[in-house]
Design a protein around this nucleic acid. Structure first.
Lengths: 181, 181
DNA sequence: ATCTATTGCAACATTGATGTTGCAGTTGAC
DNA sequence: GTCAACTGCAACATCAATGTTGCAATAGAT
């Protein structure tokens, strides 16, 4: 039972994330149906809709945090860390396609966690600037935004590209652009 | 009266677009309140919620279409057309921040129009490839996605950057990337 | 000044989503 | 086999959003 409960809960979270990404107003009933469980079962696990959303966010934040840790953004050489980050974060973006920046407004705890993770990445971008991997005239905030945009794009609009190749494409577009030299 | 009606209708559309972009499930009541009109007045203008959304999409499509026309994507030199397109489309993205790709699914007519506009831009990107402005190893669909992502990013995450500079930033990131040569 | 269109306001009906509870059936742990 | 936990199902109450209507007030056109 305990095993079943855990599996179904996880299924609800993943299914919910997928449906909520397509349509943030997806009903609990629709999520439950898609996950193959009864509506009341979902309500027994999650006190209310907010709680379900919070659980989804937490799952995404957990995955993202592990990726940030394993990328060794402060220790590894910039190109290595960048590639490891990309290869890790792209599957996370695909598995939890919910837009955290928009949907976590009402959850201060999750927002704070997200801010912290965001700051780690921004620090990394700053290091890339400082160590001369980015052009001197590039604003760090803009570089950060570009990287995020490229990750989202490859993750959601090209779901068939496998993570290593996706990371290559993003890093290449980010650093070299798509134009002729 | 006719003038008032038109002004209020426009105000509802713009306000609605802004609120719906932040939260696609924003209620008609909230939109009406933000636009400074009564809820019933909105219902008199738009038969139902769908009709309001359709009107917002149509307004965005109208603006985007004008930008595509004026950019002369098929006639002008690639760099010129690209810059004109960017400088025009960024204000459109800001004024109508709704995500058309996601929210227009249920409106086949608007979807078709969007597809047509999308095809025009894809054709332009293909021309940029053919004429040697993009690296030969670059997939046109990926180039297209990157351009879209950069436009969305500068439009919504850097609303203070004025259109000409924003266009410069996007074109620069798109063609040259952010890394050192 | 009169007429007409439009608005705000209040009231109402309807619908869909949310959340709760009781009960019977199932399943895994022991 | 027994027990405890979990599930599906049905029923219910509640609430927010939607959409409608009638009426009085207002403002622009003539």
């Amino acid at each position: 039972m305990r095993a079943d409960a855990a599996r179904n809960l996880s299924s609800v979270l993943r299914t919910g994330a997928r449906l909520l990404a397509e349509d943030p107003s997806t009903s609990m009933a629709a999520i439950a149906a898609a996950a193959g469980v009864d509506r009341t079962t979902v309500h027994r696990r999650f006190a209310n809709r907010e709680a379900l959303l919070r659980a989804v966010f937490q799952a995404k934040l957990d995955s993202a945090e592990r990726v940030l840790d394993e990328a060794r953004l402060t220790e590894a050489p910039v190109p290595v860390a960048l590639h490891r980050y990309l290869e890790g974060i792209i599957p996370v973006a695909r598995e939890w396609p919910v837009d955290t920046r928009r949907m976590m407004q009402k959850d201060p705890e999750a927002s704070a966690r997200r801010e912290a993770q965001s700051a780690r990445l921004s620090t990394f971008i700053q290091r890339a600037c400082d160590e001369g991997y980015l052009r001197a005239d590039i604003d760090a905030a803009w570089a950060r935004a570009v990287l995020d945009a490229l990750v989202d794009s490859i993750a959601h609009r090209f779901p068939a590209v496998d993570p290593p190749q996706a990371a290559d494409l993003v890093a290449d577009a980010f650093l070299r652009g798509l134009g002729v030299t």
